[in-house]
């Protein structure tokens, strides 16, 4: 594990403003930002832990907890909002059996997140699973879409 982190550290060695890409690549590698990995990163780059945490907690794309294998992003943009995106979000969570405050299914298959806007407003309401966008959604279609993901 550390070997892979070392590779990332070498890649950005001596480069200005590397905190964000370092954390992005670390997260890509491990799926989330574990406390021990952040500490390791700090020790070997000289960037203070506080600074790394400061960055990691500021941006919504960083996760401090393990995420599901597939990330479902439910768009909460204006167009989706007026096209009943809230109902869609409730339906997805209910379909996956997530209780309040819970974002990841117990089998680690899905994590459900809300995002500000996916920029696919013309197809509202929209969700994104991984890098795939699904538009013009109705509650009825959810089961079939989610079934495609293992």
């Amino acid at each position: 594990m550390k070997l892979n982190i070392d590779k990332i550290i070498t890649k950005y060695k001596g480069k200005n403003g590397a905190a964000i890409p370092l954390l992005q690549e670390l997260q890509e590698l491990e799926g989330y930002l574990a406390p021990e990995s952040i500490r390791y990163l700090s020790e070997h780059t000289g960037i203070p832990v506080a600074e790394l945490y400061g960055v990691a907690t500021f941006y919504s794309m960083f996760y401090l907890e393990p995420q599901g294998r597939h990330i479902i992003r439910v768009c909460k943009g204006t167009a989706c909002h007026v096209s009943e995106a809230d109902t869609l979000g409730v339906a997805i969570r209910s379909h996956l059996g997530l209780s309040e405050g819970e974002n990841t299914t117990s089998d680690g298959r899905f994590t459900v997140l809300e995002v500000a806007c996916l920029g696919c407003c013309s197809l509202a309401p929209v969700i994104m699973i991984g890098d795939t966008t699904y538009g013009k959604l109705v509650v009825d279609k959810i089961g079939k879409i989610l079934d495609q993901y293992e």
Binding site: N16, G17, I20, V55, Y59, M61, F62, A116
Partner: peptide, 18 residues
């Protein structure tokens, strides 16, 4: 990395600076 405020130019610069 997902922050709306980074559309503001000085915030965007801070973000590029890491």
């Amino acid at each position: 990395a997902g922050a709306f405020v980074c559309g503001e130019e000085t915030a965007l610069i801070a973000s590029i600076e890491g």
